[in-house]
Computed example of a mutant assay.
Amino acid sequence: MAQASDQGRGTVDHAATMRNTYELINAGDIDGFGDLLAADFVEHQGGPGYPPTKEGTLDFFRDLAGAFPDWHMAVQDLIAGSDKTVARVRVTGTQRGEFIGIPPTGGSADVELIDIMRFDSAGLVCEHWGVADMLRLMQQLGVMPAAAPA
Results as ranks from 00 to 15, higher is better:
residue 65 A to N: 12
residue 138 M to K: 09
residue 84 K to H: 13
residue 123 G to F: 10
residue 82 S to V: 12
residue 12 V to W: 02
residue 73 M to P: 01
residue 127 E to G: 07
residue 82 S to N: 14
residue 24 L to D: 02
residue 108 S to E: 15
residue 138 M to S: 11
residue 12 V to P: 02
residue 127 E to Y: 05
residue 96 R to Q: 15
residue 140 Q to H: 04
residue 71 W to K: 11
residue 108 S to K: 14
residue 116 I to D: 02
residue 85 T to N: 08
residue 97 G to W: 00
residue 134 M to H: 13
residue 8 G to S: 11
residue 68 F to I: 11
residue 132 A to H: 03
residue 135 L to A: 13
residue 3 Q to F: 11
residue 138 M to F: 15
residue 65 A to G: 13
residue 21 T to N: 05
residue 87 A to R: 00
residue 131 V to I: 14
residue 11 T to A: 14
residue 20 N to K: 15
residue 127 E to V: 04
residue 99 F to L: 14
residue 6 D to N: 11
residue 58 L to V: 12
residue 37 L to I: 03
residue 60 F to T: 08
residue 15 A to C: 01
residue 120 D to L: 04
residue 135 L to R: 12
residue 127 E to N: 08
residue 89 V to I: 15
residue 50 Y to Q: 09
residue 138 M to H: 11
residue 16 A to D: 07
residue 44 H to S: 10
residue 110 D to I: 06
residue 116 I to N: 01
residue 14 H to F: 02
residue 97 G to A: 02
residue 21 T to C: 12
residue 57 T to F: 04
residue 8 G to T: 07
residue 94 T to L: 06
residue 6 D to K: 02
residue 50 Y to E: 08
residue 93 G to V: 02
residue 41 F to E: 04
residue 64 L to N: 02
residue 1 M to V: 13
residue 140 Q to E: 10
residue 107 G to K: 11
residue 49 G to M: 03
residue 115 D to Q: 07
residue 36 L to Q: 02
residue 23 E to V: 02
residue 77 D to S: 13
residue 54 K to W: 01
residue 137 L to K: 01
residue 76 Q to Y: 05
residue 126 C to T: 10
residue 62 R to P: 10
residue 108 S to M: 08
residue 110 D to K: 05
residue 108 S to A: 15
residue 52 P to N: 08
residue 10 G to E: 05
residue 129 W to F: 06
residue 129 W to R: 03
residue 97 G to R: 01
residue 148 A to Q: 14
residue 93 G to W: 00
residue 112 E to Q: 14
residue 134 M to E: 13
residue 75 V to Q: 06
residue 124 L to T: 04
residue 69 P to E: 07
residue 2 A to P: 14
residue 28 G to W: 01
residue 97 G to C: 03
